[in-house]
Design a protein around this nucleic acid. Structure first.
Length: 843
RNA sequence: GCGAAAGUGGCGGAACUGGUAGACGCGCAGGACUUAGGAUCCUGUGGGGCAACCCGUCCGGGUUCGAGUCCCGGCUUUCGCACCA
């Protein structure tokens, strides 16, 4: 029987993925194979993947790439004996759903459940080890009740506040636009130029947490690129805050005429000089205090509160017009337009170092939201200032040079090097190196009460208000008597009403503001008539705590069960896209820190280990609907099977870098599974397994284990392919001991077919409960190894020697090779021996 | 402009800490089995040369016995942030 050529028997029982996969989907469901006993788990392992937005188009191949990568890691951990919890839910609120709903004219509350059902079907077909009992959707009142609860925790701790802030406004559509809806300064829908509008909005004080968010990064096992992105986003800068006096302001105060109604005007009317009760000095932030002798002007942001105070009567009209225009520009244009514009205020400030008056300008290249909203202009040593000064004829003074000899050299561009310059034209500080001058100048100014060393952060507070419909209402009630009052926790959730006209309109507020019956509510404090907040919260708030909820899904009385939370969190492994490296990951860390400070949870970092996966392109080009080159997972799964599709996705490139989906490549993976299938069909249990095959097997067990642990899935698959090739080389009948462990190795990648083969091997129970194959170093050891022999660094031959052979033995073996010997004339000058690798003879 | 990453056969990609460049797969070529094969199996496959050999990891330098890997300079591509003082 073993004489019959094995190939001929394949026809009897060929691999039929559709049948195998549907069989095992049912089995897993019936047997609860993917269920995790959350309370009873002895070795909990929380394997998290980023939950998707359930679009109408269905699951994207990028989603599936990410999920499969996370699933393989989770299944691998399970086979290592961990109790793995792998939940998955839906991030279903937000502008995507809302815009799509508007486009097709169907209510999102109807659309989303359909999309979720479709996603669920696709996800189950993909063979994910998800415990669906703990799924969630952010749109479910049972979930967003607790999103609102999270808001209240921040409110209670003084971390949520209201302030006026700019939004993008389309004057044609009369609606608020998200930044992504503004293309080159115009509305993406109608093309009208977008303007800024100022609305009262809710903010979270994430900037208070900037130092901690930055410092903790050092303790996290995350992809380095993700940590770098967060560091840059938090953007710590060291420097100094320097105060500039406005020149002789009150001797000549007749020139200063504050805008009617401004704080300055009120003081004015009360008979006070503004300087008397309010610090009218202008504070700037700089990272280059060493260049202060070169500060020849000053700039305020158009929104700066002192603009009203200092502008002189003759400049008033020009300043007003400039500021109005600057503030009307949309946020995107203002940030991208490179041309320098500005207007002189008519006022001067005193440079605290030179004691000279310098003009105060207003320009939109200075941003109110960074630093103090004012800068000292040092055209000699800052590119932007150089450009501005050149344009407006402001003097350019060199105060740093490569050497003292260059003190008089003219500048034809800004000299920004702060590493190895020395100071010039800087009075007592001349000839000091920049780094020392920074310290000494700050000390000098500080002694005069005009400066202090500070560190500032780029990170802004998080605006969570959205003037939209499809989100959780912010749980606040405005009462004329009591002000903003939080909705009491026992009245949560504040349900989002299912209104028909959810289209944004020209009111500048959420569509909810048109529904009086909804927003009228009694004040929780005084029971008087009051009005609900009609804005909803940012989707990023929904996703900033979802991982805390999964284990407690089903609990109505608490956001998260204390015992389960301390048992399962923080998350052991988080895998997701780098596009969320900053916002989602930073917000999640922030919310976790706040809840930790509030005593609600016992840890302050949510994700112990994070790995960012790469992106998939197709045939070398980015996938997009307009190109029509999007991979539709359903079609490939239909044709090739989910196991083949999963394995191919993991094979086409390094998981953390992504890769190129080539339709022609998938057949190779399928052939691999076919050959695996055939090997199980042909098994022979007789005799002893082949020593060389078993050696290769154990080498493969080791390699696959190591590779999966570091998410090097493509090389793990390559190793298994190599082993199958070894197994089937020549017309031999594989031995059961050679094949069985391979089925287990393949299981995380191709779970359905692995289960089927495991059963066909006569094994009881799921392969995922069978444990990872044991690695035997003795069986894996080579008895002869190949040593490369080089002469002067060029490979000239190879010799077979015992693995523990020493240099002398290796050298004599090498010299016995004619191909080597002919290059070695006389005594070698030097011999380099790397055991197990090579021998280099230098002549 | 700033930040991050990457440039290796016809193609996707291997090479973990400097140590046999091109694993694995696609494609291609030849062969076997076949009425047939786009199925399966076997063999070959970086370039040049009859060969000994020579040349090869974006380009130019350098360090080293030895460089795809490290250092310096340049080019190209992708991604992120974009007037952050």
């Amino acid at each position: 029987m073993s004489n019959a050529p094995p190939r001929e028997r394949e026809a009897i029982d060929t691999y039929d993925p559709a049948a195998v996969e549907s069989k095992w989907r049912d089995r897993w469901r019936e047997r609860g194979t993917n269920h995790t006993d959350l309370h009873g788990a002895a070795r909990p392992f929380y394997s998290l993947m980023m939950f998707p937005y359930p679009s109408a188009e269905g699951l994207h191949v990028g989603n599936l790439f990410a999920f499969t990568g996370a699933d393989i890691y989770g299944r691998f951990q399970r086979m290592q004996g961990k109790n793995v919890f792998e939940p998955l839910g839906y991030d279903a609120f937000g502008i995507h759903s809302e815009n799509y709903a508007l486009k097709v004219g169907e209510h999102p509350a109807q659309l989303i459940p359909k999309n979720i059902a479709n996603f669920r079907r696709q996800l189950e077909r993909a063979g994910l080890m998800v415990d669906w009992r703990y799924s969630l959707s952010t749109t479910d009142p049972a979930y967003y009740k607790w999103t609102q609860w999270v808001f209240l925790q921040l409110f209670r701790r003084g971390l949520a506040y209201r302030k006026k802030s700019a939004v993008n406004w389309c004057p044609n559509d009369k609606t608020v636009l998200a930044n992504e809806q503004v293309i080159a300064g115009a509305c993406e829908r109608c093309g009208a130029l977008v303007e800024q509008r100022f609305l009262e909005q809710w903010f979270f004080r994430i900037s208070d947490y900037a130092p901690r968010l930055l410092k903790n990064l050092d303790t996290l096992d995350w992809s380095e690129s993700t940590k770098t992105a967060q560091r840059n986003w938090i953007g710590r800068s060291e420097g100094a805050e320097i105060a500039f006096e406005v020149e002789a302001a009150w001797d000549r105060h007749t020139r200063l005429t504050p805008i009617p109604g401004s704080a300055a005007a009120k003081q004015w009317q009360a008979g006070q000089a503004p300087g008397a009760s309010m610090d009218s000095r202008i504070r700037v932030f700089t990272t280059r205090p060493d260049t202060i002798y070169g500060a020849t002007y000053m700039v305020l942001a158009p929104e700066h509160p002192l603009v009203d105070v200092i502008t002189t009567a003759d400049q008033r009209a020009a300043v007003d017009s400039y500021c109005r225009q600057a503030m009307r520009q949309d946020l995107v244009t203002r940030r991208t337009s490179r041309e320098k514009t500005g207007v002189f205020t008519g006022a001067h400030a005193i440079n605290p170092a030179t004691k000279q008056p310098i003009p105060i300008w207003i320009a939109d290249y200075v941003l109110m939201e960074y630093g103090t909203g004012a800068i000292m202009g040092v055209p000699g040593h800052d590119e932007r200032d150089f450009e501005f000064a050149t344009q407006f004829g402001i003097p350019i003074v060199r105060v740093v040079a490569a050497s003292a000899a260059e003190a008089g050299a003219a500048l034809d561009e800004a000299f920004v090097d702060d590493a190895d310059g020395v100071l010039v034209n800087s009075g007592p500080f001349d000839a000091l190196p920049v780094s020392e001058a920074k310290r000494r100048i700050v000390d000098m100014l500080a002694a005069a009460g005009a400066a202090r060393a500070v560190e500032i952060y780029r990170l802004h507070d998080w605006c969570i208000s959205r003037q939209r419909y499809w989100g959780p209402p912010i749980p606040i009630i405005y009462c004329d008597r009591c002000g903003p009052v939080p909705v009491p926790e026992d009245q949560l959730p504040v349900l989002l009403p299912e209104i028909e006209d959810f289209k944004p309109d020209d009111s500048g507020v959420s569509p909810l503001a048109r529904h009086e019956s909804w927003y009228r509510a009694p004040c929780p404090k005084c029971a008087g008539p009051a009005r609900r907040e009609t804005d909803v919260s940012d989707t990023f708030l929904d996703s900033a705590w979802y991982f805390l909820r999964y284990p407690s899904v089903g609990r109505d009385d608490v956001p998260f069960d204390t015992e389960l939370t301390s048992k399962w969190l923080p998350v052991d492994s988080y895998i997701g896209g780098n596009e969320h490296a900053v916002l989602h990951m930073l917000y999640s860390r922030f919310i976790t820190m706040v809840l930790s400070d509030a005593g609600a949870i016992g840890f302050e970092e949510p994700f112990t280990r994070f790995r960012a996966h790469g992106m998939i392109v197709r045939e070398g080009a980015k996938m997009s609907k307009s190109r029509g080159n999007v991979v539709i997972p359903d079609r490939f799964i239909e044709e090739w099977g989910a196991d083949t599709f999963r394995t191919y996705l993991m094979f086409l490139g390094p998981f953390e870098e992504g890769g190129d989906f080539r339709d022609s490549g998938i057949s190779g993976v399928r052939r691999f599974l076919d050959r695996l299938w055939a090997s199980v069909g042909e098994l022979s249990g007789e005799g002893a397994p082949d020593t060389l095959v078993m050696r290769k097997l154990h080498q493969t067990i080791r390699k696959v284990g190591e590779d999966v642990q570091r998410l090097s899935y493509n090389t793990a698959i390559a190793a298994m392919m190599e082993y199958v090739n070894t197994l089937r080389r020549g017309e031999r009948t594989p031995h059961r001991a050679e094949v069985e462990p391979l089925v287990a190795l393949v299981a995380p990648f191709a779970p359905h077919v692995a289960e089927e083969l495991w059963e066909r091997l006569g094994r009881e129970g799921s392969v995922f409960d069978a444990g990872w194959p044991e690695f035997d170093a003795g069986l894996a050891a080579e008895d002869r190894i190949e040593l490369a022999v080089q002469v002067n660094g060029k490979t000239r031959g190879r010799v077979q020697i015992a693995p523990d052979a020493g240099q002398d033995l290796a050298l004599s073996a090498a010299l016995a090779e004619p191909g080597v010997a002919k290059f070695v004339t006389g005594e070698p000058r030097k011999v380099i021996f790397v055991p197990g690798r090579l021998l280099n003879i230098v002549v």
